[in-house]
Nucleic acid binder design. Structure first.
Lengths: 346, 346
DNA sequence: CTGAAAGCGCTTACAG
DNA sequence: CTGAAAGCGCTTACAG
């Protein structure tokens, strides 16, 4: 008379359920569902049909606890909402899914403590591997990873301690090309809105910037090299300080496209036109993935290639296909993409 | 004489290890590490120190398998590299982390099969809940979620079947404001580059577009309403078709900012200037988070608010704080942000 | 080709 | 305040 039967307990079916319904043991059911060869075709079919019928979904928790593999990885970046990282995350997730890995995403906001927590979370979830763009500063965040032996690959940046796998862009070349391009156009006072020097790519882009100046015989003006304290917070403070100090400059090289756009935005608000009065070069070539109606000259680093490379290396580590002593230090080429935000000095 | 001792097995320490080293049982160790009240302060201290010393990291797999909670959630969107979704994902991850939840990210590329797999992955990983922007088309993807009883909240879109929680934007109002703004400026032929009608927000923005025309007494021209087959692939095909057909229009309303930018890009390539010759309105106000040097008139939907709201509802469901019969149908307000991509018709 | 047993590392419920 | 036992749902290794 009552509705008892309608309110099912909503308990997910388990191997045990299938075992009871088919008359086999959980062992056989498990093997049948994994298409093992040593199960008769008939049994396999029977069990798979029943699983299908019940809408069986394997419990990865239990499976992982026993097998030691979770088919899970973590991507740790400063901020997924930055298109550069968003694109990388997408590429990694796509590659991961092809290999039946599921991806955790964790942000660090360039904060060491948040990074430490992120790594801790990933480890407690027993990820099989981690792809991480280390937060700025030379902390000891990676030490815990090494202690646990969890495979990990740095992406986009490397640390002083080179005994880790990494995939980076050729940042020195990128910085060089950006500055050389501006110098070629006749610019002599090139404001460099750089990231903090604790970030390897910032140091290397600066080295390239310097080399271009040297080769052109143009002295570098230290007051035109500005570091932003945190790339997630933008560069308008630094840019305004330079404008307020009335330091002369005819071009800007920004650490990334986000800052380049911010620079153009601020300059335009100040009545300065780009590229007529000020030339601007960015880094990342985000426009390769998004149509932005402002054609920005920028340095292109292949985010797809970098991400896939990092994933491949991680797979090799996870599957023990790489010698313990060997370190992967991949440097992906950068190229200059000249669009319309740069112009010869008048 | 040999190096045996140096090559430690790299096995992560477990409760059992701490138990053996301190002389307590795993039970007591477990409770001490969780700061349970019924453990003496001295014991707790001793155990916590030992855990610290060993660098103990709890095995969430084991914990979850027993407790039934994973402190894990999945965010399923069409494409994290779209800034709109990237921002949402960031907001959700940030909120989640505050509550000690770790976030899986899964892309659907607007593809039903990829979506089905994504949901399957999330379920097999035993996530406590899912926030999902359903892929276009009215499939049965959510049925499996309902069967398993895993809490989930739709974000950004809802389905025909309204018996699910959702948090959306006021898309009808947004579409209305965009079209009304253009009509006010004197535009009469407003090309609407919309998403596919199987997406609720596309239908509702169109309804708003129509209402604005009705109120202004301007007939809607069906040939100016174009749907793109897949928002991830952009709108240039549709735009070019309209241009090639030489259909007259003086303004464009794009389904989202990405398409608005793409539209401006294509128009500029064709020698048409925005806003001088063609006005353009977008949707999403991505510029609230990124400095883009092209001031786009757009409809703002609060991505932060929407994301946090969805997360809150999910938490309520997970913690059983919401009546089973009740459905959350939140509509977050939209506003028009007038910038410089729109102008009165000459 | 299939089964019986052990165990992954925790938490739960109960005993004392 | 602490312990002994059971069990979460799988996979592994071995037996037959």
């Amino acid at each position: 008379m009552d509705d008892k039967d309608e309110r099912q307990p909503l308990r997910a079916p388990t191997l045990k359920d299938i075992a009871e319904l088919t008359g086999f043991t959980v062992n056989t059911v498990s093997r049948a569902l994994k298409n093992k060869e040593d199960i008769s075709a008939a049994t396999r079919q029977l069990i798979q049909n029943k699983a299908q019928e019940l809408g069986y979904i394997g419990n990865a928790l239990a499976s992982s606890l026993r097998s030691g593999r979770t088919k899970t990885l973590a991507v740790i970046v400063s901020d997924v909402s930055n298109p550069h990282f968003a694109i990388s995350v997408k590429e990694i997730e796509t590659a991961a899914r092809k290999h039946e890995y599921t991806t955790f995403i964790l942000n660090t906001y360039e904060d060491r403590e948040a990074e430490r927590q992120a790594i801790q979370s990933a480890l407690s979830k027993n990820v099989d591997g981690i792809i991480i763009c280390p937060a700025q500063g030379e902390g000891a965040s990676m030490d815990v990873l090494r202690r646990t032996g969890t495979p990990f690959v740095l992406i986009g940046r490397h640390l002083q301690d080179d005994a880790m796998d990494y995939v980076i862009s050729d940042d020195e070349k990128g910085g060089y090309m950006a500055a050389a391009h501006l110098l070629d156009l006749g610019h002599r006072e090139i404001l460099f809105l750089n990231a903090h020097r604790s970030i390897s790519s910032a140091r290397e882009r600066l080295a390239g910037y310097r080399r271009a100046h040297e080769e052109a015989g143009v002295p570098v003006r230290p007051e035109l090299i500005r570091e932003v304290p945190n790339i997630e917070r933008g560069c308008r403070g630094e840019l305004k300080a330079v404008l307020d100090a009335k330091l002369p400059f005819t071009a800007v090289f920004a650490f990334n496209d986000m800052m380049a756009w911010e620079t153009i935005y601020v300059l335009q608000r100040q009545g300065l036109r780009v590229p007529e009065q000020i030339s601007v070069v960015g880094f990342d070539n985000i426009q390769s993935r998004m149509f932005i109606p402002f054609p920005l000259t920028t340095v292109s680093n292949s985010k797809g290639k970098t991400s896939r490379k990092a994933f491949e290396i991680l797979m090799k580590r996870i599957h023990g296909q790489a010698a313990d002593g060997h370190r992967f230090h991949e440097v992906v080429d950068t190229t200059l993409v000249v669009r319309e935000s740069t112009r010869p000095i008048r």
